[in-house]
Every structure is written in C-alpha cells, then in structure tokens.
Amino acid sequence: MGILTLENVSYVYSPSTPFEKEALHDVNIDFTEGKITGIIGHTGSGKSTVAQLLNGLLKPASGKVLLDGCDIFDPSVKLSDVRFRVGLVFQYPEYQLFEETVFRDIAFGPTNMGLDEAEIKRRVIESARFAGLDEELLGRSPFELSGGQKRRAAIAGVMAMEPEVIVLDEPAAGLDPRGRDEILSGIRRYRDEKGNTVILISHSMEDMALYSDELVVMSRGTVLVSGTVDEVFRQSALIEESGLTLPQITRVFDRLRADGVNIRDGVYTVEDGYREMLSLLKGNTNA
C-alpha cells in the first residue's frame, strides 16, 4: 500500500438539493511514496475534488482516505496534523501572498506549525532554492515579483512545511513555456532531493508525460486508466475516447503503427519518437 490511498471513495456536491451532483464514484487510487503522480482529466472529471479530499478539505460521502494506512477522518486523527502532512497548492496560488516580504510569506506555514526560528529560516532558504527563487528576492515584497516568481514563492510556502505529500493543482496554469518548465523542474528537484511524494493535477498530457512517474487518468468521476507513464500511454485509444487530447507525437506514431510499421506503443515525447525513428531508419539501411 502506498503512502496515500483513496479507497472506494465517492463524493457528492450539494447532497439532497436539486443541484446534487456526484463528482466521484467509487474511486480507488494508490499514491506511491517518493513518486511524482500526475492526475489528468477534463474540467469536471473530478480531479480537483480528489485534491481537496486528499488533505481533508472535503469529506468523502463514502469510502476512506488513508494516510500511511490511517483513515484521516478517524476521530483520533487531528485534521490539522493531516493538513501539515499533506500540503495542498491551489490553482493560481500567487493570489494568496500577503506578507511584507517573500521570506515572511514562505515562513507563514512553518510558523503556524510552531517551529523555532532557526528551523524556519533553514526551511525558507531551502524551499526557495527548490522553487528556483534567488536568495536576494527573499527580502523583497512579494508584490514586486514577476508573475512566474510570485507563483514560485507561493509554492515554496507550501514546500517549506515539508509535507510528506505535496499536492499541486495546475501549478503551471497560465504561464509561458519557460515559466512552466522552471516550475515543473523545481518540483522535480524538490522530490529528488527530499524524496517526498508529489501529486500533480493537470490537463496537459504533454507536461505530465515529461514530469511524472505515474499517471492517473480521470473521466466523469472515475479512474479511467492508471499506472506508470509508459503503461498509461499504451492505452492511448482509451484516453482519446474520454475526450482528452493526446500529445501530437503520440497520435502520429499511433497512426504509423496502425499502418503496420513496427513501432512500440506509447511514444509520447519528441526524444522517444526520435529514438524510434532512428532505430527504424537505421534498420532500413542495414536491411
């Protein structure tokens, strides 16, 4: 069993009103410790609901959310502890910055945890580094930063709490390609060095293919496919049926394979495609 598990979880919005809507139906997901897991789906697929269930902001209608094997809604478990152990970064987190300096903003979470000053300082500096923020920026007002820097400061604010699991909802939304790469590689750097579990929520197949180890594809409140990135991309037909857009390269190679070209299934990055093409072309010249 992984570090965080959803067991037969269902969730209903506005229960017993005319607006009642089942957002999740019998969802089972097992998040592996130390891995980056990407949750992909359309708006309304239930992926954001999953994010809020994971740290107890929402309570499942039925089923369990298990953290290290313990039900987080068990009366003996303090929900505030769960929130410290499972950090959640919302969409457009830069809009929650409020302190006078970037340093103090990043320190807000650790301070709420009651840590001593030296430890807080260590964590702020470390997480700023993960997020790719220069130390000289820490003394500035967060409102003087660029859009991408603000986003990174907000993410550092949650990283500084050193949660065992960090959940990020669309961390790269609205950023340009450079900003997106900086954030996603910072998140990977954090995982590589701290070994903590990361859950990314996104609707970009391309980004998730590049930055995750495992994928969960959601559709209409259920899990459609899950597994390692390779395993999931092998089910490309199923993914496309659910209305998600596959990476352009996957579609091209799927079509070539359908023509009988001997290509492995689940090509999803340019590097993959390039390697496949080279081996085919060299094979041709040899033959």
């Binding site: 740290n55 410290f84 950090g87 809009y95 929650q96 807000f108 979470g109 949650v158």
Partner: peptide, 10 residues
C-alpha cells in the same frame, strides 16, 4: 478559495 489556501498553510 483564499480561506482554503491559508487553511492549507495551517
């Protein structure tokens, strides 16, 4: 949204 975000930061 902001309330939830700050709650998540403890």
């Amino acid at each position: 949204k902001i309330i939830n975000a700050q709650k998540a930061r403890g």
